[in-house]
């Protein structure tokens, strides 16, 4: 690992992540997420599904995989149009800052609006990181953004939310390790699809997803 990983996983990296709640805004609206306990549950299922898939894709993209083929695999694992749009929007944001932060020819091989995980893998490679690092950043980002979104929306104690995220670290590591070892996971959570699609139709949403 190099310090580039810290930059890549930093919530302050201006790649647009702060406007995405990863389903948290809608989970709160539907009463699925109400407190610290249900936040932990929500983050766990997100990490185990979309987090694992993102970790696998990021690792493969970092490891020199065919980026267009990986982007198609990401689409196949993301049938929800709302989730696809959110992923590609964040991918575009990461490419914008990544190109300037870590110049590399690899950026030009990406499709126009890449899935976030694919862009993350390219960013990791461009920053001198390896597939395991890319997987770790993807897995971590799958919970860190949603955690702070819940903190903002529910006015939760930030220390509690920080503790929840920190205590998920072994699970984040485990997801990253398996993503590298087992190839491309396809774990999905239909609940996240439903939350994303209902959220996308709302006019009173604060988060983009």
């Amino acid at each position: 690992m190099t310090a580039a990983l810290l930059t890549l996983a930093d919530s302050r990296l201006p790649a647009g992540g702060h406007a995405h709640s990863g389903g948290v805004e809608q989970a709160i609206a539907m009463g699925v997420l109400t407190d610290a306990g249900s936040l932990t549950t929500f983050l766990r299922r997100r990490l185990a599904t979309s987090g694992a898939v993102a970790a696998g894709l990021a690792a493969a993209a970092c490891g020199g995989g065919d980026l267009a083929a990986l982007d198609a695999e990401a689409d196949a694992r993301t049938p929800s149009p709302a989730l696809r749009a959110a992923s590609r929007q964040q991918g575009r944001g990461l490419v914008r800052v990544g190109r300037r932060a870590w110049p590399s020819a690899a950026w030009d091989e990406l499709p126009a609006l890449p899935h976030h995980a694919i862009a993350l893998g390219v960013a990791a490679a461009a920053g001198g990181l390896g597939p395991r690092d890319a997987a770790q950043a993807a897995a971590y980002l799958s919970v860190s953004g949603p955690a702070t979104a819940a903190q903002r929306l529910l006015a939760m104690d930030p220390l509690t939310v920080a503790a929840i995220t920190a205590r998920l670290a072994p699970e984040v590591d485990d997801v990253a390790t398996r993503a590298v070892a087992d190839g491309l996971p396809a774990a999905t959570d239909p609940l996240l699809d439903l939350l994303a699609e209902v959220h996308a139709t709302r006019k009173d949403r604060i988060f983009a997803s």
Binding site: P14, G16, A19, V97, R152, I206, F207, A208
Partner: peptide, 16 residues
């Protein structure tokens, strides 16, 4: 959408 943080969206992370 600014994710509860209007100042972030215009100053710290202008991506959106």
């Amino acid at each position: 959408q600014t994710g509860c943080c209007p100042h972030t969206a215009i100053r710290d992370d202008i991506t959106a």
